[in-house]
Amino acid sequence: MIVAIVLTGVLTLGPFAPGPAPATVRPGDSGAAVLKLQKRLHALRYDPGDRNGRYGKETEAAVWAFQKVHRMRPDGIVDAPVRRALERPRQPRRLERGPRRRVEISLRRQLLTVYRRGRPVLISHVSSGTGRHYCERGACGVARTPTGDFRVFRRVKGWHRARLGYMYRPLYFHGGFAMHGSMNVPRRPASHGCVRVPLHTADRLARLVPNGTHVHIRR
Score class of each variant (00 low, 15 high):
A4G: 08
L86W: 02
L41K: 02
G193S: 05
V103Y: 02
H125K: 12
L122N: 05
T147P: 00
H42I: 00
S182L: 05
K57Q: 14
G175I: 01
R45L: 00
G14K: 08
R132P: 03
L37D: 01
L44F: 03
D149C: 00
V63Y: 02
G141T: 10
G56T: 03
R144F: 04
G212H: 08
Q110Y: 06
T59D: 06
F177A: 01
F16T: 13
H160D: 13
V156T: 13
V156G: 02
V121R: 10
Y115T: 00
P15D: 12
H180R: 04
P210Q: 09
R154G: 03
L11K: 11
W64L: 03
A61S: 14
N184I: 14
C140A: 09
R94F: 04
G118L: 10
R101T: 13
T130M: 05
V215A: 07
P48Y: 09
R73M: 07
K39T: 13
A65I: 04
V6W: 08
F153N: 11
T213A: 11
P20L: 10
G165K: 11
T201I: 10
H192L: 03
C140L: 09
Y166E: 14
A162E: 12
R154W: 13
G138P: 07
G53A: 04
V6R: 14
